[in-house]
Amino acid sequence: MIDRVITKGTFSLDGGTWEVDNNVWVVGDAREVVVIDAAHDAAPIAERVGGRAVRAILCTHAHNDHVNAAADLARLTGAPIRLHPDDQVLWEQVYGPEVSYEPLADGEKLVAGGNVLEILHTPGHSPGAVCVSAPELGVLFSGDTLFKGGPGATGRSYSSFETIIDSIRKRLLTLPAETVVHTGHGDSTSIGAEAPHLEEWIARGH
Rank of each mutant, 00 (worst) to 15 (best):
L140K: 11
D29N: 03
T183Y: 02
T17F: 05
D86C: 12
H182L: 15
G50E: 05
T17R: 05
E162H: 11
V116Q: 11
L173V: 12
V180D: 13
G78M: 13
G15K: 08
V5R: 11
R156A: 11
D41E: 11
D166Q: 05
T7C: 10
L90K: 05
S159A: 15
L83R: 00
R204F: 14
G96H: 13
D87N: 04
A195I: 09
S12C: 08
K170N: 12
L110S: 09
R52D: 03
K8F: 04
G96V: 13
I168P: 00
V35W: 01
M1G: 07
A177D: 13
A56N: 09
V34E: 07
T145Y: 09
G192T: 05
E194C: 06
L73F: 04
A38M: 07
N68S: 10
A53W: 10
H185T: 07
P97Q: 10
C131Y: 02
V24G: 00
L76A: 14
I119F: 10
W91K: 01
E118I: 04
Q93N: 07
W25V: 11
Q88E: 15
D166T: 11
S126I: 02
V67L: 02
G149C: 04
S159P: 02
I165E: 15
G16Y: 02
L58P: 06
P151N: 06
L146Y: 05
A42S: 08
H206P: 00
I81W: 04
D87T: 04
T10N: 05
F147N: 01
R171I: 02
L76S: 12
E92Q: 15
H185C: 09
T122P: 06
T189H: 00
E199M: 07
H40R: 02
E47A: 15
E118V: 03
W91V: 09
H66K: 01
D86E: 04
D21A: 06
H197V: 05
E98G: 07
D87P: 03
E98F: 08
H185E: 11
V27W: 04
L140V: 14
R48K: 14
E92G: 01
A71V: 10
L110W: 15
W91H: 11
P151F: 07
I168E: 08
H206S: 15
G113R: 03
D106N: 11
L117Y: 02
C59I: 01
S188V: 13
R31Q: 09
R52I: 00
H182P: 09
Y95W: 12
T179F: 04
A193N: 08
K109I: 11
G113D: 08
G96F: 06
V35I: 15
T163A: 09
A46G: 13
G152M: 01
E136I: 03
G128D: 03
